[in-house]
Design a protein around this nucleic acid. Structure first.
Lengths: 362, 362
DNA sequence: GCGGTTTGCCAAAACGTTTCAGCAGGTTAT
DNA sequence: ATAACCTGCTGAAACGTTTTGGCAAACCGC
């Protein structure tokens, strides 16, 4: 790519007209129809002609004007991700991880991704605008709540969209998710099977379905083991003011009967690690979801922590794949349940792990 | 917005033709010219007519087709942010913070933001494509290196762009930056003035100019105080494998003469806090840049840490403002130096803070 | 040598805007 | 009364593609 760099002074035509299909037609003495069809792989153009056209296009650096294409084809070849500006969704490190997967997949398929954020009240208005001005073909919805109005709205206007997560209407739209209920059922059962009776759960905001399902999984595991739901101490999930892992962990440790802490995010677990270190022995057992946040160093937790692992980046890749499939094929929306893997802390008894989950509650 | 939600079954026309300027013209028995000019605020349409047009547009939910507008106006009203996919730039929490500011500013001005990532080798090719297919009006460049080829390329093709950070060519393009050199000069001088002779510096990747300038500032502060540059122990900046604050802090503490740690990011400082706790007394002094990462909880550091503070979100807002100014006014690119504030750890002597910086080296 | 098929190309319409160059009809200045 | 100027509107061209329908020429089977 470095050969693109020129000396200052030998600049290209500033904002100069890019080369169009007409320029090629003139140069090759062909009709613009033929140029178009040659480049788009139609069968009714001669092989020799096609060669000439392709070569000329390459040489002149021809790129079809995307706006003209979009105008006539009524397809934007781009998708939008609208994030609400409040409640810190956008600056959540988990979000970027998903985004990375989405962008990668979009690039592979030559789709553009428009990112946008506004207040929750105006979020639906942005969907409306994007649809009506033909800017995008479909949408990504992240962090759904139960009965999320964004899902209602998008079902209503009938455009392709895909949800990262689910709510009760999961049969009606495309989604990508992990088994939040099952994962936290397993983690909690694991802790109980290893003798822990009082468990602190530092969960995400339970207004979001993922966190709700996780709590249900953990609670059910305790109940199925004959414990009371109150043996799970769920912490400050209503207004999670950013990465409050340290503070919440300190709070958890003020309850003397708590011998284990369950984290909904490895980010919280790492932040809480400092507080755990300060706690006198015996140190609590730790179990956490690990979203494979790329920048996060888990070495402080190594060995002493049990993980349920699933890659958010993979989720992003699955999201964009499903969405583009809907846009291109127009097929029915599909749900995709991504796998999660388990890793036990040293010294933990994992014999319960193979036991099937009771029923398929959520 | 909830009134937009309808019962299933009463859906809108699926992907139905949106209402166009022709529809309005037909309904109002006016020419499309008049509709267009009425909506775009031209003076040559009667006030009564304008009212009728505006009202009809509102009532029918008319949105000008953006692709048609772009085609004829040759302006996309959107900008691109291309992030390279390697070296974890995209998943860096700092990035999202800037992005939040950018998105907010873009929305205010009705610009769209296209986010994109690819391998570094293909990054320039994406610029090329976006320019030649008329997808965007300008670009944002983040985390420049010295002589960054992206800057060279964009200077070359002569499209508007703005850089978050600077390199030696800062006079030639628009940028937004803080005084990296000065900030770290001040922090280091502060530590030295308070008796610290051996300082560990957990910096960012010094292939990026921001990190390089920071190191120079810190080194110069030591040298100006009569210390050797080697009294600054700069740690593992070549391959910062994600948030390795904990590991690097442990490493810093293996050097017994180190009595203070300087962090390039509060993220690292918080991660390192666990290692600091484990260190026997006396605990090292801590000073760090604070980018006001929204999700990051700084309470563990409170009181014992000195901060230089500057908001990355504000930087994002300034970036998009400068870029759109260039696109709309076509004015010359400008640089914007954002302010930073200082907050001292309890018990620290800050008398050196008001002293001017020697010269304007960098 | 003739109807029919195949091959390779093209003219024109369409997509939904903006804008240029007018054009009636009324008002004003002289 | 006439020239000049407003006021409020419009027809048509242009932006750069894709696609439809067709049309010559060449090729085929017989």
């Amino acid at each position: 790519m470095n050969r693109h760099i020129r000396e200052a002074g030998s600049r290209r035509p500033q904002a100069g007209r890019s080369v169009t299909i007409k320029d090629l037609a003139a140069e090759l003495e062909l009709s613009i129809t033929t140029i178009s069809r040659a480049l788009n792989g139609y069968a009714d153009v001669g092989e020799a002609t096609r060669q000439r056209v392709v070569e000329a296009a390459r040489r002149r650096g021809y790129r079809p004007n995307r706006n003209a294409q979009r105008l006539v084809s009524k397809r934007a070849h781009s998708i939008a991700w609208v994030q609400s500006d409040n409640d810190r969704k956008l600056v959540d490190p988990h979000f970027v991880e998903v985004m990375a997967g989405v962008l990668h997949g979009a690039r592979l398929r030559n789709y553009d991704v428009m990112l946008s954020s506004d207040t929750p009240e105006r979020e639906l208005a942005i969907y409306d605008r994007y649809v009506n001005d033909n800017s995008v073909d479909g949408f990504i919805v992240d962090l759904p709540r139960e009965g999320d109005p964004r899902i209602s709205y998008l079902l209503d206007i009938g455009r392709p969209f895909v949800v990262h997560g689910r709510d009760a209407r999961e049969g009606q739209y495309g989604w990508v998710d992990i088994d939040n209920y099952g994962n936290f059922y397993r983690l909690a059962r694991l802790l109980v099977a290893n003798g822990h009776r009082h468990i602190a759960f530092i969960n995400g905001d339970e207004h979001f379905t993922y966190a709700l399902y996780r709590r249900r999984g953990a609670v059910d595991a305790l109940v199925d083991a004959g414990l009371s739901p109150t043996n799970l101490m769920v912490l400050d999930t209503v207004h999670p003011m950013g990465g409050s892992g340290y503070r919440l962990t300190q709070q958890a440790l003020t309850e003397p009967r708590v011998t284990a802490i369950l984290y909904s995010s490895a980010l919280m677990a790492v932040e809480g690690h400092a507080a755990v270190l300060q706690a006198g022995d015996p140190r609590p057992a730790i179990a956490t979801m690990d979203d494979e946040l790329h920048y996060l160093d888990l070495t402080p937790l190594a060995g002493q922590t049990s993980f349920v692992r699933s890659s958010l980046r993979d989720a992003g890749a699955a999201l964009i794949a499903e969405l583009i499939r809907q846009c291109d094929e127009g097929g029915p929306p599909r749900g995709h349940l991504l796998p999660s893997s388990l890793e036990l802390a040293a010294g933990l008894d994992g014999t319960t792990l193979d036991a099937p989950l009771p029923g398929s509650r959520r």
